[in-house]
Computed example of a mutant assay.
Amino acid sequence: MAHAAAQLEVLRADRKALADRLERHSSWGWDVTLGLLVFGFLGSYATHDWWITGAAFVLFLVGLRVVVVVWQRRVRMRIDARERGPQRPLQVWLALCIAWALVASLELVWDVRGVVLAASAVMGLAVMGVSRWWGRAFVAQLRSEL
């Protein structure tokens, strides 16, 4: 019984250290970078040029990979999308993506210029907010399960 209690205490200490590390390394810089990457990619649809959109997609993927690798090295942990984490921010993000697609279709169907660019700017800001929200929710979840 004492051995199990000691193991549980080690686990609690690890979770607390992880939550502290996440708070320490979760600056707005990550959120802003993600927002700019999303804006650049989604905003490229406003050009109506598939070469530009394709290039923006490649830059988005490379930029996203760099952000993920650097973040993982600084925080010393990996986020696995298959693991259950805070779900509400992800549901909001999915709803925003669907809304962007609907708004973008307005520009294509009715040829309303600038709608995709404006919607992409909103999505860039939204990803910054959702990223910050998800990070705080994850730290709160780690702390609540201590």
Rank of each mutant, 00 (worst) to 15 (best):
V58P: 00
H25Q: 04
W71D: 11
V92Q: 04
D20G: 01
L94M: 12
L94V: 09
W51G: 10
D49M: 08
V70D: 11
G63F: 12
P89K: 07
E23A: 03
V75D: 05
G63M: 11
P86F: 06
E83W: 00
V67Y: 04
L22W: 07
A81K: 04
V62A: 15
G35I: 01
T47Q: 02
V67L: 14
L59G: 08
V58C: 00
R74H: 12
L90I: 07
R21F: 04
A81D: 11
L22F: 10
M77G: 03
V38S: 05
W30N: 09
R88Y: 01
M77S: 12
S26Q: 12
L59R: 01
L34Q: 13
H25M: 02
V32I: 14
Q87T: 03
S27C: 08
G63T: 11
V66W: 13
R88C: 00
A81R: 08
H48G: 07
E23G: 09
P89Y: 08
A56H: 07
L22K: 09
V69I: 15
H48E: 13
R65N: 14
Q87L: 07
R78I: 03
T53Y: 05
Y45L: 13
R84F: 01
G29L: 08
W93K: 00
R21T: 13
L18A: 14
A46E: 15
D31N: 11
P86R: 06
V67K: 02
